[in-house]
Amino acid sequence: MQINKTYYLLFVLGFILNSCVERYFPDTETNFTSKIVIEGTITTEDEDQQIVVSMSSSVAEPEFVPVSGCEVYVEDEDGNKFTFSEGNAGYYNGRIPDSNIVIGMSYRLYVKTPDGDEYRSKYEELMPCPDVDSIYTEVTSKETTDPDVDEDGLQFYVDLKADDTYGRFYRFGLIETYEYHADFPLDKWVSVDNVYTDLVTPDYSNQVCYVTDSLASIYVLSTDGFSQNSYSGFELHFVNDHTQRLLYKYSLLLKQYSMTESAYSFWKNLKENNQESVDLFGRQPASVKGNVYNINDTTEYTLGYFGVSAVRTKRVMVYPDPSFTFSEVFHCKPVIPDPPIIDRPIYYAVGIDETTGESYTGIVGEECIFCQTTGGTTEKPSYWDE
Rank of each mutant, 00 (worst) to 15 (best):
F306E: 06
E300L: 02
L154C: 06
L236F: 06
Q244C: 02
K142G: 12
V350I: 14
P337H: 07
Y24N: 10
T223H: 10
H331S: 12
I295T: 15
Y204W: 12
F306Y: 08
V72D: 03
K289Y: 11
S359T: 14
K268Q: 09
R344V: 09
T325D: 09
W189V: 03
K35S: 04
G365E: 10
I36L: 02
V335P: 00
A89E: 08
D148P: 09
S230K: 15
Q228E: 15
E261M: 07
G14L: 03
F172W: 06
Y110V: 05
V208L: 00
L174K: 05
V149M: 09
T355N: 13
Y157F: 15
Y219T: 01
S34A: 14
T377I: 06
R283A: 13
E77I: 14
Y348T: 08
G90F: 06
S191G: 06
E354W: 08
R344L: 13
C332Q: 13
A216W: 05
R95Y: 15
S309P: 06
S34F: 11
V132A: 03
I363S: 01
C371R: 05
Y157N: 08
T41L: 12
G365V: 12
Q2S: 14
G116T: 11
D78T: 11
G69M: 06
G90N: 04
D343E: 15
S57K: 11
Y73K: 02
I346A: 01
L254S: 07
T298W: 09
L13D: 12
Y166W: 14
